[in-house]
Computed example of a mutant assay.
Amino acid sequence: MNVRPHSLIDSVDADGTFASAFAASPTPMVLADAQREDHPIVWANAAFLALTGYDWEDIAGRNCRMLQGPLTDSDTVARIGEALAKGAPFEAELVNYRKDGSWFWNGLTLSPVRDANGTVTHYYSAQADMTGKRNLEVAMTHANQDLGRQVAEQTADLRAALEQKTALLHEVDHRVKNNLQVISSLMLLKARRTPEGEARDALNGMAERISALSTVHRMLYSAGDVTRFNFREFADEFVGDLVAGIDGDRTVVNASIDSMAVSAAMAAPLALMLHELATNAVRHAFPNDRAGRIGITAQRRDDALHMTIEDDGIGLSAGPPNPAGFGRSLVEMVVRQLRGTIAWSETNPGTRVAIRVPLDAVSLRDATADPVEEAPQWEK
């Protein structure tokens, strides 16, 4: 049941069209008299009665605060009072109660109705049951919280697994480094007890190569990121050791190495390349106490490592034959397996080796998959 609105509405709705439309609207609506004490309800439509469970006789002449209860937010109620006192519109969602005591979230809109003089004579209010929306929001909040907890737990598990993997890789590199050092020491010991000749030279050469690989694993072990290798740090240490073992007044080594991180899988191949080319230049470019210079550069350009090793020595063609050597073949094999390119050239005087290797190159494959070619005459 509902009653006709106040005569103010009747005066602009002589044929009852608006009143009939409001009465039949599915949107709960109520009208309160702003000029009477406590703003009593003077009209409500059937949708409002259905929402609240009240009959018209239960609410006629009463204030809408009858819908409030224990869960109704007092701050929102206070803001409603302030809006009414100012004659201002107001919107909010708050908990209201039905006649049977059940509560629901009420989406409330208050609109002042003014007369020709601008005086607020009534307050019109539209309602909406927002309980489903609120329940969905709560469910989504809980779901997001559960998801957040699951993500946090999985992240913690992944972090722990990564830490374990990192610790394992550190341990592997540490053990490999120790084992390589032992092997290198054994080979050097055997070399000292081997008569001078090709066998001793071969043992010393292999010991040096193994020592270079040991240095790589030591650096990987000490690095914070076991998946990346700082090529410049290795090159600086290698060149320092190389210079320390030669006569600096006779042979000058200049190195310019850019700081660049490469994948750990590329560390050993790059170390072998640098070791072979630099040590070959030191040992074979300047025979008979010839003085000279060696230049080593490594730069990152176009996502690739560009490395050159050049000297002003006797050149490739003038080198003495050495059928037992395989350094050049080793370098060329490594470059191919890293999908790179290598160019050897005579510079008159001297030799220049230019290498380009993509920095996303795959790791070194099994050497048996790419047989070593016959070594050139000059190699050690």
Rank of each mutant, 00 (worst) to 15 (best):
His142Ala: 13
Glu93Pro: 02
Ala199Glu: 14
Met206Leu: 14
Leu8Val: 10
Ala167Cys: 08
Val151His: 03
Arg134Lys: 13
Tyr124Thr: 13
Asn117Cys: 05
Pro323Arg: 13
Leu270Lys: 02
Glu93Met: 05
Val357Gly: 00
Met273Trp: 00
Ser222His: 02
Leu31Asn: 03
Arg365Pro: 06
Asp303Lys: 09
Phe229Gln: 01
Glu276Cys: 11
Pro28Val: 06
Phe286Cys: 03
Ala116Lys: 12
Val282Thr: 07
Gly327Tyr: 07
Ile9Thr: 10
Thr368Asn: 15
Glu91Arg: 15
Ala85Phe: 13
Leu169Tyr: 08
Ala265His: 05
Val95Gly: 01
Glu163Asp: 07
His170Lys: 15
Ile210Asp: 01
Glu37Val: 15
Pro5Trp: 15
Leu189Gly: 14
His39Lys: 05
Val172Thr: 15
Leu49Tyr: 11
Glu332Pro: 05
Asp129Cys: 08
His39Leu: 05
Pro5Tyr: 14
Phe18His: 07
Asp312Leu: 14
Gln337Met: 03
Gly87Tyr: 13
Met266Gly: 00
Asp15Met: 05
Ala47Phe: 05
Pro269Met: 07
Met66Asn: 06
Val334Thr: 07
Ala139Lys: 12
Val182His: 14
Gln181Thr: 12
Leu51Tyr: 07
Gly295Val: 07
Pro112Asp: 13
Ala265Lys: 08
Phe229Arg: 01
Ile342Tyr: 12
Leu203Gly: 04
Tyr221Arg: 08
Leu108Val: 12
Trp43Gly: 12
Ala207Glu: 03
Glu57Phe: 13
Val331Phe: 09
Ala83Met: 11
Val331Met: 06
Thr215Pro: 03
Leu51Ile: 08
Leu94Gly: 06
Leu272Glu: 04
Asp146His: 13
Arg290Ala: 11
Val30Cys: 01
Phe48Arg: 02
Leu110Arg: 06
Ser125Arg: 05
Glu163Pro: 01
Ser74His: 12
Val357Thr: 03
His170Ile: 14
Ile9Pro: 00
Ala156Met: 06
Gln377Met: 07
Ala285Met: 10
Arg336Cys: 06
Gln68Gly: 02
Leu169Ser: 02
Gly87Glu: 09
Leu338Ala: 08
Gln181Gly: 10
Ala244Val: 01
Gly325Lys: 08
Ala152Thr: 04
Trp344Phe: 06
Ser345Thr: 15
Leu277Glu: 01
Ala207Asp: 01
Thr297Ala: 09
Arg356Ser: 00
Arg62Phe: 09
Arg290Tyr: 11
Lys177Val: 00
Glu374Trp: 00
Ala24Met: 11
Thr119Met: 11
Val362Tyr: 05
Val362Arg: 08
Gly295Trp: 08
Thr72Cys: 14
Trp105Tyr: 14
Asn96Glu: 04
Ala139Phe: 08
